[in-house]
Amino acid sequence: MNAISLGIDRARYETKIYFRQGDTIFFTFLFPIVMLSIFSVAFSAAGNFGTDAHGHGGISAAAFYVPGMIAAGILLSGVQNLAVDIANERGDGTLKRLSGTPLPVLSYFIGKIGQVLVTSILQIALLLLVAHFAFGVALPTSGQKWGTFVWVYLLGITTSAVIGIALSRVPRTGRSATAVIIPIVLVLQFISGVYLQFSQLPVWLQNVASVFPLKWMAQGMRYVFLPDGFKTVEQGGVWNLGLIAIVLGIWLVAGLIAARFTFRWIRKDA
């Protein structure tokens, strides 16, 4: 129990620090909102997405990009934020200091995941507010869609957070952290249907992207936020919620195992 209450204290402390760092606020917190605004404005003259044969119907560029930006936000808040943050904390001596205190590793993890949850919920709330009020995007009205949103979100954010913790071991120094992590995250966003329409990518690239979790988070969010007719351009012409749960679940377990067995406060004898 003590480890949990120490974890909650840690989450509070971490969240406070998060909002004091200008660079993370921009590149992690506001990034999806900025990108949504750019795409919405850039493509607003190109007409609607998904129109019928006569050019009628369809949805606005903003509405089309909302699901992808939510998925990107989940990935950034979890993977990019944590992998860079923890690698920096290893480099600047924060972890060394903590390892000399009676703070349990579990509390540290709870603190990080708590910080990710709080910041990412705020991020997505802000994104939806901007999409709805600035760009007139209609939000789902059925409880069933919002239910799906909640589980895809929670599964996605937890998976991203544990992958972020596991990936923090990859950069050798705190300084190289952004250079190592950001390209991985960026490439995933391009091949997973965040910036580019997934159905227009070559099939082999779609298959590559399908190995990674972002594609599935984006697909789940498309189910929630796009009209049902858009399923015809998904792989196999179905939303495939079951497979989304399975793939994300596998990544969650793999990430947990990797985080559990690779995390060390310090590199001994480094």
Binding site: Y13, I17, G93
Partner: peptide
């Protein structure tokens, strides 16, 4: 420790109040 280079985005009071809770 011999050196520390934490980013230090907390006040002296906040940092000590947080570490006090760990013990």
């Amino acid at each position: 420790l011999q050196s520390s280079g934490e980013s230090g985005n907390v006040s002296v009071q906040e940092q000590l109040a947080y570490f006090a809770k760990i013990y």
